[in-house]
């Protein structure tokens, strides 16, 4: 009974923290565009707070630069359980065009923290991001919440 109630609550209020680990900024502004009245992320009960300490979902963009190698794990540990990591764009998945000879990126993100969902694209359209977050976020949060620690 309590679990069911918790499920409902967790599904309907998701706090999101956006972490740019070194990308071109394109994915970040597409997430900002999601806040716009047209897409209106908040009508699905999702709030972008940019504060890892109260985040349920970490949205990772960017290809993990030098300074993020340790800080990313620190931020991940700061987020309270249950938490879900969604990688937006190609940078966290493969490093995109930056993962070539001469650059200083350490993609993919999954080398550092576990990734629950992936959204490919450079950058993905807001509609694609929205669909992916809604498909994964609520249920994953609820399922992770049910796991025994």
């Amino acid at each position: 009974m309590l679990d069911a109630l918790k499920d409902v609550v967790r599904k309907s209020s998701i706090h999101v923290c956006l972490i740019n680990t070194g990308g071109c900024n394109g994915c970040d502004i597409e997430v900002v565009a999601l806040l716009s009245p047209r897409y209106d992320l908040e009508q699905y009960g999702i709030y972008v707070h940019n504060n890892p300490r109260e985040a349920d979902v970490l949205l990772i963009t960017g290809a993990v630069c030098e300074q993020w190698k340790e800080n990313l794990q620190r931020i991940y540990s700061k987020a309270p359980e249950p938490k879900v990591v969604v990688a937006i764009g190609n940078c966290p998945l493969t490093g995109d065009v930056f993962n070539q000879e001469g650059s200083s990126v350490y993609a993919p993100v999954s080398d550092f923290i576990p990734v629950d969902a992936e959204i490919p694209g450079c950058p993905p359209r807001p509609a694609e991001i929205l669909a992916a977050i809604l498909a994964v976020g609520p249920d994953a949060i609820a399922a992770k919440g049910r796991e025994k620690p």
């Binding site: 740019n20 680990t21 070194g22 990308g23 300074q67 930056f98 000879e101 001469g102 650059s103």
Partner: peptide, 13 residues
């Protein structure tokens, strides 16, 4: 230094 990717070096060559 948080988003340094070395893009100029990638373009070279």
């Amino acid at each position: 230094g948080y988003v340094h990717r070395g893009i100029e070096r990638v373009i070279e060559g």
